[in-house]
């Protein structure tokens, strides 16, 4: 009986404070969407970083045209460097052909680029991840090599960007959460003020403070729940769209699509919504119904 009573009271309160409820709902939804988008971005970037970091390969580039025997000589020279497992040569033409066949039909490459922009590449496999930096340094010291890239330093750079995103995202989310909390506090405050007579009568007939508070707190939870549901719909729809678009456009970007990780992101975003609604209402009601 009591729960039904409380729920009916909260629903009435929610409907009565119309515009303010809508404002809270929109704010909480926007905050949760931003939070969710941020979490999805971090998880995806982490995923990319770990995939990049796990590859024990170095790419050494030679820009000018070289013939097969020069290529073989350079390969031999590289393979003599300590800790190198093997060396594979991909010529300018081969790389270009591969690239073109990968993107056949999707990009009109010949319209964009007239001549082959790709360098000759030596793919160097290293025996242990620890040796990558040293091997890369030795190879880059060879006069014939124009540039050396390896996933280690790319992963490091990527990690640095990821850390930056994490910190700025954290600040943004914290600010959003505070703003949302304040707006929920205000909404519930208005509901409480609008229901002063009801509260007076409740007290008069002997309602305890907690009995008076519960409907308002539930109203906060209700705002949180609806906000969580709305943000879930928005997040799920947009993320699926982004994944679909990116897979068509940049299929090499490893996006997270596993149900498990996504499930936990959506669940935590929803939980934060409910907690925000409840906490806001609690703070509001406690400050207004102090003492008796």
């Amino acid at each position: 009986m009591s729960f039904e009573f409380f729920f009916r009271e909260s629903w009435t309160g929610f409907r009565r404070s119309g515009i303010m409820s809508a404002v809270s709902l929109v704010t909480i939804t926007v905050s949760l969407v931003v939070l969710g988008a941020f979490l999805l971005a971090v998880v995806n970037m982490g995923n990319i970083a770990s995939i990049i970091g796990s590859k024990m390969e170095i790419a050494a580039y030679v820009d000018k045209n070289i013939d097969d025997s020069t290529a073989a000589a350079i390969s031999l020279q590289i393979s003599q460097v300590e800790s190198v497992e093997n060396v594979k040569f991909i010529s300018k033409e081969e790389a270009w052909n591969n690239f073109r066949s990968d993107y056949e039909g999707r990009l009109a490459l010949s319209e964009i680029i007239s001549e082959n922009p790709l360098p000759n590449t030596f793919i160097v496999k290293v025996k242990t991840p620890q040796a990558i930096a040293a091997v890369a340094k030795k190879i880059s010291n060879m006069s014939v090599i124009d540039e050396v890239r390896y996933s280690g330093n790319l992963a490091d750079r990527f990690q640095a960007v990821l850390d930056l995103v994490r910190i700025s995202g954290f600040v943004l989310v914290a600010l959003l959460i505070i703003a949302t909390l304040l707006i929920v506090i205000n909404t519930i405050k208005l509901t409480v003020i609008a229901r002063q007579t009801d509260i007076y009568i409740m007290r008069l007939v002997g309602a305890t403070n907690s009995f008076i508070k519960w409907p308002f707190i539930l109203e906060g939870v209700l705002i949180g729940l609806i906000g969580a549901a709305l943000s879930f719909i928005i997040l799920k729809f947009s993320y699926d769209l982004v994944v679909h678009e990116l897979n068509g456009f940049m299929p090499f970007v490893p996006l997270v699509t596993s149900g498990y990780k996504l499930f936990w992101i959506y669940v935590s975003v929803g939980a934060i919504g409910v907690v925000l609604g409840m906490l806001g209402a609690y703070i509001s009601v406690n400050s207004l119904l102090k003492g008796e």
């Binding site: 007290r203 008069l204 007939v205 002997g206 309602a207 305890t208 009995f211």
Partner: peptide, 10 residues
């Protein structure tokens, strides 16, 4: 005390 008031009013 304040918490007892509801019970008085009943």
């Amino acid at each position: 005390k304040a918490p007892q008031i509801p019970f008085l009013r009943r």
